[in-house]
């Protein structure tokens, strides 16, 4: 297939943009799952999710600087150790933070109207951003460049580096693991039941608040993993990146049908690909407009997203 693409420069170029879009899209998907799971269970647009992701990347950066592993020259063993530690500590940190926020800020508002909770989430997002600002300042910070840029498919006219492989290698198993968790475990069953009808779930003996906390924990952990992957892939982090990436991820969640996990993955990939192809063929300046244009058009024809269930809103 690669040889085929190499024949025609335009085709090879298209293939390259497709690769970039899919890699970036899988990153968005990982963040989008956090949005979609929380929404599915308590119908909250968690505006703070993107900023949680940002704080996660700052922690990962702190781990790297703490260990002094800042360039690829540190040696393979150190790099593996550092990334391993990041992949354990960051999700743990994000999950704990997310659960704490839920316990003290969202849980007391469980019976309040939606808007009240959304505004609280905006408040949390502001606070997270301010913490990020104090933590690393307003300047973008270089994230250690730990993974080689060697092209794995040299000679095909395309470029797929170790970094791209790392993104796919971490995001895809994570998503598979999550699907297994939601589909086949007791917790997953309890989550689905709560999402469907919290009252009925409670009557069935499900500890709803615990299930919600678990959802926040899983969503936070995914944001943590995504933040490590993002740092290693994009190589620069700053306190405002949560907003931009959160917006894309949130859009991905809605595009796929908010509350629907495969939908979030699909939405993330669509947004990644559309955004990058837009940058390449329409110019970078139109890519955001294109993403949201497509979102609106899709919602006009499928008002509940690509994979969303066609339910009527309760009246």
């Amino acid at each position: 297939m690669f040889e085929l693409l190499a024949i025609h420069p335009a085709a090879s170029e298209f293939g390259q943009f497709l690769i970039l879009g899919l890699v970036l899209g899988s990153l968005y998907a990982l963040i989008a799952i956090g949005y979609t799971m929380v929404y599915g269970i308590i119908e909250l647009i968690n505006f703070a999710h993107g900023d949680l992701f940002m704080l996660g990347s700052f922690l990962a950066l702190g781990i790297a600087s703490g260990l002094g592993v800042l360039t690829a020259e540190a040696g393979v063993a150190w790099i593996v150790l550092t990334i391993g530690l990041m992949l354990v500590a960051t999700p743990l940190f994000c999950a704990t933070l997310n659960v704490t926020i839920d316990r003290f800020i969202y849980r007391p508002l469980r019976k309040s109207p939606k808007l009240t909770v959304i505004v609280s989430a905006i408040g949390v997002s502001f606070i997270f951003m301010n913490i990020g600002l104090f933590w690393r300042g307003a300047t973008p910070v270089k994230f250690p460049d730990l993974i080689a840029d060697t092209n794995l498919i040299d000679g095909t006219g395309l470029r797929f580096t170790w970094k791209d492989a790392m993104v796919v290698g971490i995001t895809v198993p994570t998503m598979i693991g999550l699907t297994v968790l939601v589909k086949f475990t007791t917790l997953g069953k309890a989550m689905r039941a709560t999402a469907q009808n919290p009252h009925a779930a409670q009557l069935m003996g499900i500890h709803v608040n615990r299930v919600i906390a678990a959802t926040f924990a899983i969503g936070g952990a995914l944001a943590g993993i995504a933040s490590v992957v993002y740092g290693l892939y994009i190589k620069s982090v700053d306190y405002q990146m949560g907003f931009q990436n959160g917006l894309y991820a949130f859009t991905a969640a809605v595009l796929g049908g908010v509350g629907n996990i495969p939908g979030a993955v699909l939405g993330g990939l669509v947004i990644g690909v559309v955004g990058e192809l837009g940058k390449a063929y329409l110019g970078a300046k139109w890519s955001e407009a294109l993403i949201f244009g497509i979102l609106i058009i899709i919602l006009l024809f499928r008002p509940t997203g690509l994979l969303g269930a066609r339910t009527r809103e309760k009246v």
Partner: peptide, 16 residues
């Protein structure tokens, strides 16, 4: 520099 922090806290307390 504390503006967002203050905004955020006010919003959360108000909503609560």
């Amino acid at each position: 520099g504390w503006k967002l922090m203050i905004f955020g806290t006010v919003l959360i307390l108000m909503m609560r």
